[in-house]
């Protein structure tokens, strides 16, 4: 075990470092859970039914008003207009025309 003095942001710390075997590895980004996304000030528009995406009415960067239609999902000849429950700016779109979606899938994220 060796002790080093390490300067971080102008402040010195004593750090103990042990020799370890070098191993290869990778860091995989875990998709953020919906609760984490919402707690960071984002709003998530969910699929209210399973179906096929007929149309996506917005693109990333668009400003969206509450009640604005953002997508249409079809199932069993039910065409479902998905309206935003929030004002916001489109931060991410997880769907495209022709995709199959499940109930509660995250469609569009607003910030």
């Amino acid at each position: 075990m060796k002790i080093y003095k390490v300067k971080v942001n102008g402040k010195y710390y004593e750090v103990e470092v042990s020799a370890v075997e070098q191993v290869s590895g990778e860091v995989k980004l875990q998709p953020q859970k919906q609760e984490e996304i919402v707690s960071q000030g984002y709003n998530v528009i969910l699929a209210p039914i399973a179906g096929k995406v007929l149309d996506v009415k917005v693109k990333v960067g668009d400003m969206v008003k509450k009640n604005q239609t953002v997508a249409i999902i079809e199932a069993m000849k039910l065409e479902n207009e998905i309206q935003s429950a929030f004002d916001g700016q489109v931060s991410a779109i997880n769907i495209k025309k022709g995709d199959d979606v499940r109930n509660k899938d995250e469609l569009i994220i607003l910030k």
């Binding site: 209210p48 039914i49 069993m76 000849k77 039910l78 479902n80 935003s84 429950a85």
Partner: peptide
């Protein structure tokens, strides 16, 4: 034709 209006 069935249509629906949804928020969440």
């Amino acid at each position: 034709l069935l249509e629906a209006v949804s928020k969440q």
